[in-house]
Simulated assay, not measured.
Amino acid sequence: MNTFEMIALEDTVTQVKGIICSDMAGEKVMLSVKNGKYYNLGETGGVIWDLIENPIKVREIVESMKAEYDVNDQECEIQVRSFLDNLIREGLIHKNI
C-alpha cells in the first residue's frame, strides 16, 4: 500500500542544496550531486524550479502558473501538485508543513 500523501496547497516547498542547474535551449536541466541523476524539467518545470528557489507555498506557485499560462484552475493545481510530488520523491525539494 502506498502511504505517500499528495502535497497540499498550503504546504511550503523549496529546493534542496547540492543541485547543479543550467538552462539549455529554454529548458532547465539539473544534476543532483546527492543521487548522481540528471533531470530535464523542460520549460514549464523550469519556471516552477525558479519559483521554489526560496520557500514558497504551493498555492502561490499555482497562482503564478495560472497567470503565466492559459490553463484552468483545476488542471493547473493537479499538474503543479503532481510535478512537486515527483520532485519530492526524487529528493530535489523539501516540503515544510
Rank of each mutant, 00 (worst) to 15 (best):
M1E: 10
F4W: 04
F4E: 01
E5L: 10
M6P: 12
M6T: 15
M6W: 09
I7L: 10
A8P: 14
A8Y: 13
L9K: 03
L9V: 11
E10I: 04
E10G: 11
D11H: 06
D11W: 00
D11A: 09
T12P: 15
V13S: 00
T14L: 14
T14Q: 15
Q15T: 12
V16H: 15
V16T: 02
V16F: 14
G18V: 01
I19L: 04
I20T: 05
I20N: 05
I20R: 03
C21I: 03
D23Y: 02
M24H: 09
M24R: 06
M24A: 08
M24S: 09
A25R: 03
A25H: 03
G26V: 00
G26M: 00
E27N: 13
K28V: 07
K28Y: 02
V29I: 01
V29W: 13
V29Y: 14
M30Y: 00
L31D: 05
S32Y: 10
K34V: 01
K34Y: 12
K34T: 11
K34D: 13
N35L: 04
G36T: 00
G36P: 02
K37F: 15
K37D: 10
K37E: 05
Y39A: 02
Y39R: 01
Y39K: 13
Y39C: 03
N40W: 03
L41F: 05
G42V: 14
G42C: 10
E43H: 13
G45T: 15
G45A: 07
G46V: 03
V47L: 14
W49R: 14
D50Q: 08
D50I: 08
L51D: 01
L51K: 08
I52H: 01
I52A: 00
I52P: 00
E53H: 12
E53C: 04
E53G: 13
E53K: 14
P55R: 09
I56T: 10
K57A: 08
V58W: 14
V58I: 02
R59H: 05
R59E: 04
E60L: 12
I61S: 09
V62G: 04
V62N: 12
V62H: 12
E63Q: 12
M65W: 13
M65I: 04
K66P: 07
Y69H: 13
Y69T: 09
D70W: 13
N72H: 11
N72F: 06
C76Y: 13
C76A: 07
E77N: 06
E77H: 09
E77P: 01
I78L: 05
I78R: 03
Q79G: 14
Q79M: 06
V80R: 07
V80I: 04
V80T: 06
S82W: 11
F83K: 03
F83V: 14
F83R: 02
F83E: 10
L84V: 00
L84E: 03
L84K: 03
L87C: 08
L87K: 01
I88C: 10
I88K: 09
R89E: 03
E90M: 14
G91H: 11
G91W: 09
L92E: 05
I93F: 01
K95G: 07
K95N: 15
K95I: 15
I97K: 15
I97F: 15
